[in-house]
């Protein structure tokens, strides 16, 4: 079974984010990148499925040439090859143009299954996976916490706000991965050394014009300092008064 795992490189989660001079994007000075948390889960699931059913795992990403580093990390964890769609304006593309660019490459690779994270931990959109499935005309299950593949059929358990849902679907399909699906492995020395010999293909892509545009980016205002209105039961009236009349939350 051939699987494509789509990953995005995102700023590390400990980043002290600063807005850039254009007021529309992050100040990239000193920013370190990593594979988005949920995409790591997608890669792990892809490698586990390969170990169980055989086949090949291809890592597909869109980004600047530097993003080969994140692809290489996935190869160290057991994926077989990487494809990097280079796009100098990768961080300004909206979900739909990203999905279109990925779709063209996925069709060329012709996998049985596409796995990706439920969302990327930078913009938290969660849109590329379902859009990719729609463009391909494939089945799609999002936020998956359990996945079984048997021949050309699959069963996925997903978490929703109303409870756990179980779906049967036909391959090919796009699955977006939620936290509880698995625990990603460490690369290990053998994997890291083997990754050096695995191919990463760079291909230019033409995602087309974005239909959504970031017009302004700003850091949330700092939270006001808390105030202790008193102690014990005697403080309750003052607290109620503050919640009603100052915070206006009651």
């Amino acid at each position: 079974m051939n699987i494509v795992a789509c990953i995005k490189r995102v700023p590390t989660t400990d980043l002290q984010a600063k807005v850039g001079g254009d007021q529309k994007s992050l100040d990239s000075a000193g920013v370190q990148y990593m594979v988005s948390f949920y995409d790591e889960i997608a890669v792990e699931e892809a490698v586990r499925l390969k170990e169980k059913h055989g086949g090949e795992v291809t890592i597909l990403s869109m980004g600047p040439s530097d993003a080969a580093k994140e692809i290489r990390e996935c190869l160290a964890k057991g994926a077989d090859k990487g494809v990097l769609l280079t796009d100098s304006e990768w961080d300004q593309r909206d979900a739909l143009s990203t999905a279109k660019a990925l779709k063209a490459k996925v069709e060329e690779l012709g996998p049985n299954l596409v796995l990706t994270g439920r969302l990327a931990t930078d913009h938290d959109n969660g849109a590329v996976g379902p859009m990719l499935a729609t463009l391909l005309g494939w089945a799609c299950v999002t936020d998956v916490i359990e996945l079984e593949i048997d021949g050309d059929k699959g069963t996925a358990k997903r978490e929703s706000e109303s409870g756990v849902e179980i779906y049967d679907f036909q391959l090919p399909a796009v699955i977006t991965c939620q936290k509880d699906l698995n625990e990603p492995r460490y690369a290990g020395l053998k994997g890291i050394m083997a990754a050096k010999k695995k191919p990463v293909e760079e291909a230019a892509c033409e995602p087309g014009a974005s239909q959504a545009e970031v017009t302004k980016l700003s850091v949330p205002p700092a939270r006001k300092e808390g105030r202790i209105v008193g102690e014990g039961a005697a403080a309750v009236p003052a607290l109620l008064d503050a919640l009603r009349n100052e915070a206006k939350v009651l």
Binding site: K69, Y186, K196
Partner: peptide
């Protein structure tokens, strides 16, 4: 080198 950096990051994570 790339593999030295990957080893460093992997062990840091571990």
């Amino acid at each position: 080198t790339e593999d030295q950096r990957m080893i460093q990051e992997m062990v840091r994570d571990f």
